[in-house]
Simulated scan of single mutants.
Amino acid sequence: MNLAFISQPTSPNALRAISALLTAVAKEKPNVGYIASQPDPNREYFAQTQQLYQSLNAQMSVYLELESGFNHEAFNALLNCDVIHLSGGDTQRFLRSVKQRELNTVLKSFVEDGGAIVGVSAGAMLLTPSIASAALCGDMITDEEAALRAISLVNFQFVPHVTEEQLNQIHFKQQLRELKSPCYLCSDNDAVLQMGKELVLYGTPTLYKNPAK
């Protein structure tokens, strides 16, 4: 199972983590598919991500939107990619769309069959047991706890964009204590890479384990 949990994809350690994952794919020029967290009419973020992967000697030619612009041909092409990139955005909206399209089981099967996934911010949280951690990085979470259950490819949760200032805030610490699973806190220059059974940390991610659980 090859998964990258990224906070900010253009940061040095994020690029190192993505590059290591692409190397593990063991292809001269891996093919990457992109799933948008929400409509990107001008494909602005897609184009930026294309350039990022091009700089890492990979190609990104598949764009999949999950809402009104859903395209079955793009979906089929996505499943033939070596790597799937889950974009950042509104985490709750992204998870709802993934479930509506029944992609949670599709993505699990993709990984089990040897595919790799790069999750950025919201996309990374989708790979964990729950997106409840999205509240810690400013997302508005309104769904009930059961609806926040995510794809659960790992046994930890993920909080991107964490700052030193937040770590000292009482409210932030209170929110952390409400999480049901251990959680990796990542600054914009941190990344977590699951390579098979090995977990590789880039930068200085902090693992938080609730002492009450």
Rank of each mutant, 00 (worst) to 15 (best):
V62C: 14
L193Q: 10
N71R: 11
F94V: 07
S87W: 03
L103Q: 02
E178Q: 14
C186V: 09
R43I: 01
C186K: 05
N189G: 03
C186N: 14
V32Q: 01
I18S: 10
E144M: 08
K29Q: 10
K180R: 10
A20I: 05
E67Q: 09
P160R: 07
K27C: 04
L3P: 03
E198T: 14
N155D: 15
Q54T: 10
P39H: 09
P30A: 05
L107Y: 12
H72N: 14
R16E: 15
N80V: 02
G123N: 05
Y208Q: 07
V192D: 01
P30V: 00
R101L: 11
M195T: 11
H161D: 00
D82C: 10
L199T: 14
F46K: 08
F75T: 00
A4W: 09
E65L: 06
Y208P: 01
P129N: 05
G138F: 12
A24C: 13
D139V: 01
L193K: 02
V120P: 01
S37P: 09
S121N: 12
N155S: 15
N31I: 13
D139E: 14
D40E: 09
E145N: 13
L64V: 03
V154I: 13
S97Q: 14
S7H: 07
T91I: 12
P160Q: 04
F5G: 04
M1T: 06
S181E: 11
A135T: 13
P205M: 08
E145D: 15
P30R: 03
V200A: 11
V25G: 06
A122S: 13
L185K: 03
F158G: 01
A24G: 10
L86R: 05
A36M: 05
N210P: 04
E112I: 05
V98K: 01
Q175W: 14
H171T: 12
K173D: 09
I18E: 06
L15T: 07
L126E: 04
R149Q: 15
F156Q: 04
F156D: 02
Y53H: 07
I18K: 05
L66F: 03
F94Q: 00
L201Y: 12
N42Y: 10
C186Q: 07
L127E: 00
P9Y: 13
A74M: 10
A116P: 01
A14L: 04
Q54R: 15
K180N: 13
Q194S: 10
L126I: 08
Q175Y: 06
S55G: 06
L15F: 07
S130V: 08
E145K: 14
E164N: 14
D90I: 00
I6T: 01
L66I: 02
T105M: 13
G119A: 05
A116S: 13
T23N: 02
V32T: 02
R43G: 03
V162P: 01
S181R: 06
C81T: 13
Y45V: 07
N42R: 13
I117M: 04
Q50C: 06
T91W: 04
N104Y: 07
I131E: 00
S181V: 03
Y34C: 03
G69L: 12
N57P: 08
A47R: 12
S19T: 07
A116C: 06
E198G: 01
P205N: 11
Y34G: 03
Y184L: 05
F5P: 05
N76Q: 11
N189D: 15
F172T: 03
